[in-house]
Structure formats: structure tokens, C-alpha cells
């Protein structure tokens, strides 16, 4: 006889029956409604007073392509500056030295507490406060010669980004188990060496995903540099519509380029997240 357990009577055998697929009427209905709305919006746009020929014509205009190149160049450079500052400020913030801690807090407070566009305008118009910059006797320069739209945009965006990055970096540094720091100390490392060799590399894995997000935001924030005459894509699109009055068409051109860039960066960002999000636990590269 088999070793199966004894069973009570009165329960039918369902093992040969299959579970029916649910029709999900609700979902179909919602889908149809949403598609209808999207189609209506699309139709409105197609029939609206937009001269799509202008969009096509200017989409790959040299000055627009140059603009998006300038956008990306500035985004990359400003992000690099922001990461550098962010690391330095985060380390200062976690320092036992109260002076360094205050300076770091002050920097973060100042540059997160004022709008980015305001900071850009201040950098660009620095010469109103300091007509010349330099070390008297060693080297001086006129502020306006130094503070080109490029430099003003780089400083404005980079230093602002640094304030936000420092918070991300700080969280990253704190996320590294204190045992790592102690193990580094136990083999005779000083604080900075331990940070550099042991803690920071591990923190980078944790901060890379949020930094990727910050970068995508920065790409769009570069559009603010248009008001200080940095020739990024929005600025150049504006110049075109100042001349031909095709405001919506040129804004669509600029918008499409931003969408393209962000659409490429977003899946890359998600890849980054997947590779590094569990980096600490996984160890390895």
C-alpha cells in the first residue's frame, strides 16, 4: 500500500480542470479610452496652427546641432565639476574639524538655497562687483574677459550641482559600513587615505545611480544658461524664432532634441542602477 496520508471524503478532484483566462474587460475599456484621448490630442496637434515643415527644416540645422553639442559638453563638464566639489564638500562635512564642517554646510546652504538662474546671472555679471580679478602684482585680468558665457555657465551649473552632489556623496559615504573604515585604520591608514582607498570607492557604487539621475536633470538645466548667452540648443532655437517668429515650431525642435538625449540617457541610467545598486553586497568590480 502507498505511504500517502489518509484523506477525508467530500472534496472533489479538480486536478484535471484548467483555470480560465480572465477577460479583463476593465483594462480593455481603459486602454481604448486612453488611446482615444491620445489620438484626439495627436489630431489636434496635427491640425493645429503648427507649420510642421519648419520643424523638419530646422531639426538638423547646423546651429541647432551645434546647440545640442554645446548642451552636452556643458552638462558633462558641469557634472564633472559638481562631482569633484561634491566629494570634497562631503568629506569636509564629515570631518571632525568644526571649521571645515561649517564651511561645507555653508556652501551647501548657499547654493541650494538660491535659484540656479539667479546664480548664473550673478556669475555672468560678476564684473559689476569685481571689475578686475586676480592677485595684485602677480596677475590680474578684467572680469569680463575671464567670465565668458561658457565659464559663467560652467561655474554656475557646476558649483550649484556640487551642492546637491555633496548631499548624495555624504549619504554614500555614510552608507559604507563603519567596519570598513575601522579595518583601514587597523592596517595603519589615516583618515584621508582610508577615505580615498577604501571608503570612497565603495561609496561610488552607491552614489552612481542617483548621480546618473542628477546628470539627466543637469542636461535640461543647461537651458537656463541661454539667458547668459551660452549658445546651447534652446538659446540657438530662440535666435531662430526671434528672426522668423516661428516660436512653437522652434521650441518643438529644441524639445525633440532634449527628448532624444534624455531617452538615450534614461535606459543607460537604469543599467547603471542595476549594475551598481547592490554593489556593496555583491562586492566585485
Amino acid at each position: 500500500m502507498s505511504n500517502a496520508p489518509a484523506l477525508a471524503e467530500g472534496f472533489p478532484d479538480l486536478s484535471s480542470l484548467k483555470v480560465a483566462r480572465e477577460p479583463h474587460w476593465g483594462r480593455w475599456l481603459t486602454a481604448i479610452v486612453i488611446l482615444a484621448i491620445v489620438a484626439a490630442i495627436g489630431r489636434a496637434f496635427a491640425q493645429g496652427q503648427i507649420e510642421w515643415s519648419y520643424v523638419g527644416r530646422f531639426l538638423t540645422a547646423p546651429v541647432i546641432v551645434q546647440g545640442i553639442v554645446n548642451t552636452m559638453v556643458m552638462a558633462v563638464l558641469a557634472m564633472a565639476l559638481g562631482i569633484l566639489l561634491g566629494i570634497v564638500v562631503a568629506i569636509m562635512r564629515l570631518s571632525p574639524n568644526p571649521v571645515l564642517k561649517s564651511v561645507a554646510s555653508g556652501y551647501t546652504w548657499l547654493f541650494r538655497g538660491t535659484p540656479l538662474i539667479l546664480q548664473l546671472l550673478l556669475w555672468f555679471n560678476l564684473a559689476l562687483v569685481f571689475p578686475t580679478i586676480g592677485i595684485p602684482g602677480v596677475w590680474t585680468a578684467r572680469a569680463v574677459d575671464l567670465m565668458t558665457p561658457f565659464l559663467a555657465a560652467l561655474l554656475g551649473l557646476g558649483i550649484n550641482q556640487g551642492a546637491y552632489t555633496s548631499e548624495v556623496m555624504r549619504a554614500g559615504l555614510l552608507s559604507v559600513d563603519i567596519g570598513q573604515y575601522e579595518a583601514a585604520q587597523a592596517i595603519g591608514m589615516g583618515r584621508l587615505q582610508a577615505l580615498r582607498r577604501i571608503v570612497l570607492p565603495q561609496a561610488m557604487r552607491v552614489v552612481l545611480p542617483p548621480l546618473g539621475n542628477e546628470f539627466i536633470g543637469l542636461v535640461k538645466a543647461t537651458s537656463l544658461a541661454s539667458v547668459i548667452q551660452y549658445p546651447e540648443v534652446l538659446h540657438n532655437a530662440e535666435n531662430i524664432y526671434y528672426a522668423n517668429s516661428r516660436v512653437i515650431e522652434l521650441l518643438i525642435v529644441a524639445g525633440l532634441w532634449y527628448l532624444l538625449v534624455v531617452s538615450i540617457l534614461t535606459p543607460l541610467q537604469m543599467l547603471l542602477e542595476r549594475r551598481f545598486a547592490r554593489g556593496i553586497a555583491r562586492g566585485g568590480r
Binding site: A127, L128, P131, A143, V144, Q229
Partner: peptide, 15 residues
């Protein structure tokens, strides 16, 4: 280029 007439006069003053 300047953003508006005030911006332009600002740039003139700054040199």
C-alpha cells in the same frame, strides 16, 4: 547678444 535692454546696458558698464 544680450537678453534685454537692461542686460545690454549692464554689459556696457562692465566693459
Amino acid at each position: 547678444p544680450g537678453e534685454n535692454s537692461i542686460d545690454v546696458r549692464n554689459q556696457l558698464k562692465q566693459g
